[in-house]
Write a protein that binds this DNA or RNA. Sequence first.
DNA 1: TATTGTTATACTCTATAACTATA
DNA 2: TATAGTTATAGAGTATAACAATA
Lengths: 167, 167
Amino acid sequence: METAASTPVVIPVLPQDLGWSLGVLFRAYVKASADAVADIPGGHRGYLVLASAARRRLWSQSALAQQLGIDRTVLTYLLDDLERFGLVERRQNPDDRRNRQVWATERGAEALDMFESRLDAAEKQVLSALSEADRKTFKSLLMRVASQVNAADPVASACEVVEDLKG
Amino acid sequence: METAASTPVVIPVLPQDLGWSLGVLFRAYVKASADAVADIPGGHRGYLVLASAARRRLWSQSALAQQLGIDRTVLTYLLDDLERFGLVERRQNPDDRRNRQVWATERGAEALDMFESRLDAAEKQVLSALSEADRKTFKSLLMRVASQVNAADPVASACEVVEDLKG
DNA sequence: TATTGTTATACTCTATAACTATA
DNA sequence: TATAGTTATAGAGTATAACAATA
């Protein structure tokens, strides 16, 4: 063992890598929120489906799947579980009976409130390195980036979202 | 089909969710950088190993694995591929012959330069929603958060990293 | 013919456990 | 006994393809 006196404590080469930083933060958030969403099938992903369903039930399953960045076949299984738990339900769109809209049940809406307050705590824990002001700035910038990225995706362009809203 | 005049174009409920935003951005970055790291085994992950090896080769494999958020057994396969491509090599630590340090080869160091310049482009594309100033702010805040989160991880505390530096 | 959602299958990725060698 | 790394196996997660219903 040498003495550590001459060796730098931390050489932050990786944090400068956007992919590394995003990966670290994403994994940390998933881990920190695991308990918060333990009661819901599909974990954090299931929560996002529930949140989407509660806020607006105009999405078709395929649009929802792509918004969440998952395969539509995966969403089928996810919805099966969420429906079994009585949190959401599938209703046929009368205007286009091919697609089904995802609705939150009353019980689902109530559960959502609980999950959200729990997730707030997880979020604060993960972002605890930042001051309140910096945290707001960070979230605001992140939101802008994510929204643009999501809208720019060729599969789910803003146009298609509008189309979907009409359906 | 109704008229879209009365329906809002985008109802941003999901962007307020930290997990959703992080997931969207992370996936977008991975996708945007796919071409940039197509030549390197393990893709973006392989790049991170190479970057770590080139910058400092003091890490043991287990420390490296945890820094990257992957299992140590996964790193074994990753290193096998990187070594086969002649980008890195494993050297036994003379002070403790149980662990092996990961070094970048000369060829690996040269390749790294190329990958980095390519990745810069991917990064700018993904963050194109932000101005130059905002992008700097965002990256700075993200780095602070990721660094703290990574240091706070019980498995790889700052102390252990220092221990590792000595090895 | 094209699209939505479902089902069954196959594949990839990751973790678990057992093993070797060093300490 | 404990740890670093490897290997083989099993499992979870994901995508691919074929199908039925609807447009």
